[in-house]
């Protein structure tokens, strides 16, 4: 069997079950070929379960160890890893907020907008400003997920007006345009999200 075919069959056998024509390629040692293959299968399921455990701590806490393991096992069986980077594994496994927290943790470093710069500007110029969301910031339903200046990651439930504010920023609107569209307290929102490092 050519190496390319052998490697495809090996991975198939790890995710699914041992294939007879692969087992024929393996030397029976102190244990049967099937048992030896199971060592690698256990490693694979263990590694991917561990990756899911790191990304989804709250899901694990909620379900308990046994149910979480079962959920992982079922997920891994139907969702093969396709990336060399385990951080890419696990999207769609459980609560999307936990997945977005994970992405926020890994997002690029970008220096947040400096509050001192803002203070020096006259109000009319401030209202013309267009901010951007920090790459670690995600909006999901009525939650904002972000990484603050001290690199801690948060998921916070926020009000409708704050969602409108952050959606406006995300969509490239100026502070004035956001105010015009939603009639919200811009100053409060601006202060909160500048301090937390969400705006760049």
């Amino acid at each position: 069997m050519q190496l390319k075919e052998l490697q495809n069959k090996f991975i198939d056998a790890l995710y699914d079950k041992a294939l007879p024509n692969l087992l024929a390629e393996v030397v029976d040692g102190k244990r049967s070929a099937e048992d030896l293959l199971a060592v690698y299968r256990n490693n694979l399921f263990g590694n991917l379960t561990n990756a899911l455990r790191i990304t989804y701590p709250k899901t694990q806490q909620k379900l308990g160890q046994k149910k979480f393991q079962k959920l992982c096992h079922d997920f891994i069986k139907k969702t093969r890893s396709r990336s060399c980077n385990l951080d890419d594994y696990g999207e769609g496994f459980a609560d999307e907020i936990e997945w977005l927290k994970h992405r926020a943790y890994l997002a690029p470093d970008v220096t947040p907008f400096d509050l001192a710069r803002l203070i020096k500007l006259p109000p009319e110029k401030i209202f013309k400003l267009k901010f951007k969301l920090h790459p670690s910031c995600f909006l999901h339903k009525n939650f904002v997920i972000y990484r603050d200046r001290s690199l801690q990651v948060y998921a916070k439930k926020i009000s409708r007006s704050e969602i409108n504010f952050l959606c406006g920023v995300r969509d490239g609107l100026s502070l004035y345009e956001i105010y015009e569209a939603h009639d919200i307290n811009i100053e409060t929102c601006l202060r909160r999200y500048l301090l937390s490092g969400v705006l760049i």
Partner: peptide, 26 residues
């Protein structure tokens, strides 16, 4: 070792290689 296959996905683990001329070249 190896971990990625061409079409079946990856194992994210250190898998064994058959030690022969083909695998040596690869």
């Amino acid at each position: 070792s190896w971990s990625n296959s061409s079409s079946a996905g990856t194992s994210n683990d250190l898998l064994p290689i058959p030690y022969n001329q083909e695998s040596l070249k690869i």
